[in-house]
Simulated scan of single mutants.
Amino acid sequence: MSYLIGIDIGTTGTKTILVDERGNQLASALEEYPLYTPHPKWAEQEPEDWWKATVNTVREVMEKSEINKADIKGIGLSGQMHGLVIMDKKHQVLRPSILWCDVRTSGQCEYIRETVGTEILTQSTCNPVLEGFTAPKIIWVRDNEPEIYEQTANILLPKDYVRFRLTGEISMEVSDAAGTLLFDIKQREWSQVVLDKLDIHPGLLPSTYESIDVCGQITPNVAEITGLLAGTPVVGGGADNACSAVGNGIVKEGRVSASLGTSGVVLAHSDQVRVDPDLRLHSFCHSVPDKCYIMGVMLSAGGAYRWFRDTVAQRELSEAKANGTDPYDLLGAQAATAPVGSEGLIFLPYLAGERTPHADANAKANFFGLTLRHQRSHLVRSVMEGV
């Protein structure tokens, strides 16, 4: 039997699964890594952390499954969208990746609106100018770290950086490229008019492929450290939401999904490019060749729950570690003791601003309605209900 490996470069961690040709999962592994917020509105990660987690989780699923490496017929990747990875001509990463939930770029967004114009942006990129997209991050580096921008030779997104480390090939696929604000969604190619107006050299951007295209093969060095077979094909893969949609069967008109990861997403398949006239929604290329999808995003969903776990739930983290359990199970049990509605306590989950339907990088989170009546269980439940 033949087998496949899927690698997801998430915001919380990297998860790798090994499945047979019928989709049955034989093994999985997860490794978490930090998210850094050195200043208000900033959110960064180290690409090297993604790579280490990829190597470790791939090696773990190979060991768990005991599958012959020659039977692994292909590897696909999905990953968090929009994150900026910049490398020099020697393929060294020049700075931490600026993530999708980073909202420092309001000034750069205004520059893009004034320089490119809403009409061109709507016709070409089919999306609003938002702080989370990649183009404002590129311009932020150019404005604030010119010495780094001058060294930049390649711009990638998170999963494409990991594919580069796996194969040595620099490429990007269309579902992720669509989230850069530099991509012509209708033509499925880089938008020369937007690049020209923003003075971003097209040579910084990689060739683009469809999600199903083979973009490289596992190198001998990677094979040695992961247990994979050198030469194993690696495909383009896709943006996390596009891949999730494919996995859930959102591949035909009329099908819609709602998913909760670090962010929360409502997504609808579309056979053609459709653009919200008020630009409240995103229109992106799908991982289904030549198809698109429409998406609304809430920036802090599972991410809000993780924030609560890491910031407030030290007791549960310690107890879970001691007992070999999951701290989320302990938090969920507490939440179950509070009534529906948390007795009037409301959590607004705007920890990183918001996108849909109110695009506002300055939106802030808060607990609203706290009284002497409220206990820890109410706090946990209100976070869940706020999402």
Rank of each mutant, 00 (worst) to 15 (best):
N24F: 08
E210L: 11
K41M: 12
I185T: 08
E173G: 01
Y305T: 11
E210P: 00
E319M: 10
F133E: 02
G23P: 05
V58H: 07
N362T: 15
I139G: 09
N127L: 03
S263Y: 07
R255D: 11
Q375L: 11
L299H: 04
P349W: 04
T356N: 06
Y305K: 11
A304R: 05
D49N: 13
P339H: 03
V265A: 11
G324I: 06
D160E: 10
E44Y: 10
G341M: 01
K52N: 14
S270F: 08
D199E: 14
C292F: 15
G216F: 02
P202W: 09
L267E: 06
E343D: 15
T180H: 05
D143L: 01
Q92P: 12
A27G: 01
G13D: 09
R95I: 13
G10L: 06
L4C: 07
A27M: 03
Q192L: 13
A230Y: 07
S175Y: 00
G254L: 04
L157K: 03
A363W: 04
S283N: 10
H286R: 11
V288W: 01
Q272I: 12
P233E: 06
G168R: 06
T325S: 07
L84A: 05
V129A: 09
S171T: 10
V275W: 01
D102T: 06
L156K: 08
D8T: 02
N248S: 13
T125W: 12
V312F: 13
P40S: 00
Q334A: 13
P349G: 00
M295A: 01
E189R: 14
G227W: 10
H282K: 07
D49E: 13
L372N: 15
